[in-house]
Every structure is written in C-alpha cells, then in structure tokens.
C-alpha cells in the first residue's frame, strides 16, 4: 500500500463484512470499560485536569462516531460544527427558557436533528466536493444567523453564559459523557447490524445502483443526517455545559468539523471502534503536544489526515493483523 502506487490509488474503504463475532466487539467493550474505570484510578493532584481531558476525549469520540454514521451513507460532511453548535446553543437557550437540563438536552438534540433535515434535503442530490462545499456553507450560514440574532436572544458575537452541567461536579459530568458515548456506540452498532447498514453502504458505493434496487435515498439519507446530527448536538450540549461559556466563533469553528472527519479517517472509516479509538489517540496526542504547538494543534490533524490518505487508507483498523474481520465493527 505504497503511496508511490500512482496507478492504483487505494480508496479509503472498509473491508467487506464477514461474520460478526464477539471477538470483533471485544476491543470496543474493553475501550468502554477502560473509559468507565478512568475516574476511579488514583489520579493524584491533577485529577481535575485529567478528568477534563478525558471528558473532552469522550466528546471527541461522540463527534467522530456520529460523523462516521453520516459518512457511511456516502455523505462526507463539513457541517458537523453546525450541529455541535446548534446543540450547544439550543441547550443554552432552552435552559434560559426555563427547561430542566435533562429535558433541554434531548430537545436540543432533536432540534439540531430537525435542522439537519433542511440541509439534507438541499444536498440530497449533491456528491463529492459539491456536497462538502454546501455543508461548509451551511455551517457559515448558521453561524452568521446566530451571530446576527439580537444580543438579548443569543448573545451575538460575544456569546452566552451556560449554567454548569450537573452543578459542576466533574465526576458526574464525566459519567454523563461516558453514558452518551456508550449510547452513541449502541446507535452505531444498531446502524451496523440492521437494514440501515445495507441501505447506507449501498448508497455510498453506488447511489444510482442502490436506487434501481429499490433503496429510497430520500428516506435513508435524511435518516443518516438526523441520527448523526442529533448525536453531534449531544456532544455540543456536553461542551456547553462543561465550558459554561459559548460564542459563535469557537462553537461553530471549522475545527469542530475537521476533527471528527480526521479522527474517523485516522481511526478507520465506517466502523464503530475506529472513530472511538482515533479520538482516544488523537486527543491524547493533542494534550501531549499542547505545550509545543499551542496555537496550531490542528497542524496535527492536517498532517494526520494527509498521511492517512496516503499511507493508511483503512486507518488504524487496517493495521490489525487479523484481517478476518478487518474493519468489521
């Protein structure tokens, strides 16, 4: 799989699916179990700091995995920041309107899901770079709108204060984030093991052929959008509740679209384990590098993206020696 292979060019692709075994699910369960145990480790004096890093690793995992679910249907989106931001803002505004947080969270997710249907409908027949550019434009439009709403409504360019999630208890916050990641993993597995997998994969690998075989692209593309963006919005809620201050520039930053995309590709596209694993590796790398590349940690994402495309088209998942179920779950 050399990059010198000018004639071939290995596509970023998943291995064909063979049997689903518990063995394939094991690394995933192990990862979740490890993540669940993390707060109980003797973290010492830096516990708060480490928990925060771990918290945002979980958020990154939710973002990457939810992005991947959309990508499985052939829709490589640059709008994930929009749904992340809509989740964050929706949650903040719903709290302001007096909703309890436990209600505001799912409602914000559903609202973002609803907004995604608009984008999904508009981009229904677009593909490749047209789709990417349209989703990029969508993010900017949403940000511009939020930023230009009256300041009394959404805080304008300055931003909004958000009450701390769960009274600011970082262990409880971590547990919530873990729960939401586990939920995202379950959704991803459900997509993988039901008819949705067949619909998404068929649309991705040959849209017209899929249609001729009876796959309704309208229904399944929109469904992919709805699932993916609702989950991304949950990540946005976690972000808003953890940082308790959100502004349009950071919340809707292109970085929030780039990170999940890169993470999924690096970890292994169209899988459940890959994006989660990728989030773990890249977030930890980011923290380790934080001091040396303060401003531009995205450099790492750019580099990782390029190198993955050139040398690791199946991401980390492609490194596994047991090709029997390579890229399986």
């Amino acid at each position: 799989m050399s990059a010198r292979n000018v004639e071939g060019g290995t596509p970023v692709r998943a291995a064909p699916r063979r049997e689903l075994t518990l063995g394939a699910a094991l690394p995933l369960l192990a990862f979740l179990a490890l993540a669940a145990l993390f707060p109980f480790l003797p973290l010492g004096s830096r516990a708060e700091f480490l928990l925060q890093i771990a918290f945002f690793t979980l958020v990154a995992g939710i973002m990457a995995l939810s992005w991947d679910i959309l990508a499985r249907s052939g829709q490589v989106s640059l709008a994930h920041a929009a749904f992340y931001g809509l989740g964050a803002y929706g949650y903040a505004l719903l709290l302001k309107a007096g909703l309890p947080w436990a209600l505001a969270m799912p409602v914000a997710a559903l609202l973002a899901g609803g907004a995604s249907l608009i984008l999904g409908a508009v981009t229904m027949r677009l593909s490749g770079m047209y789709f990417a550019i349209a989703t990029l434009a969508f993010t900017e439009v949403v940000r511009t709108i939020i930023q230009n709403l009256p300041e009394s409504v959404a805080g304008g360019a300055t931003g909004l204060l958000v009450p701390a999630l769960l009274g600011g208890n970082s262990r409880a916050q971590y547990a919530l984030a873990w729960g939401l990641l586990a939920f995202t993993v379950l959704v991803s597995l459900a997509v993988r093991l039901t008819r949705l997998h067949f619909a998404f994969a068929a649309i991705r690998q040959g849209e017209e052929t899929a249609r001729v075989l009876g796959v309704s692209i309208v229904r399944f593309k929109l469904l992919a959008f709805f699932i993916s963006s609702s989950l991304a919005a949950l990540a946005g809620v976690l972000y808003a509740g953890k940082t308790f201050f959100i502004n349009p520039l950071e919340t809707f930053s292109l970085a929030n679209s780039i990170a999940p995309l890169t993470t999924s590709i690096f970890g292994g596209l169209y899988t459940t384990l890959g994006p989660v694993l990728g989030a773990g590796v890249l977030r930890v790398a980011e923290e380790l590098l934080h001091n040396s590349v303060k401003n531009g940690y995205l450099v790492v994402y750019g580099l990782v993206l390029m190198l993955s495309i050139l040398w690791l088209p199946r991401g980390l998942m492609g490194l596994r020696r047991n090709k029997k179920h390579g890229g399986d779950l």
């Binding site: 000018v6 060019g9 490749g128 750019g302 495309i309």
Partner: peptide, 29 residues
C-alpha cells in the same frame, strides 16, 4: 497530489483538505 490522481474523488478531496489545514495552522503556529 501525484499519488492520488487515480484515487477516488473522496481521497483527493480529503488530501487537499488536510493539506490546507496543515498549511493554515503551520502559519498560525
């Protein structure tokens, strides 16, 4: 670029996208 000329459009797009992120943030750094 040369190495993805015959690769799927997705690879090409993501490669140049990664390049853009890299250059932009290198400048930022």
């Amino acid at each position: 670029i040369r190495h993805v000329l015959l690769a799927p459009e997705l690879n090409q797009m993501l490669l140049t996208f990664g390049l853009g992120i890299l250059l932009q943030n290198l400048a930022l750094m």
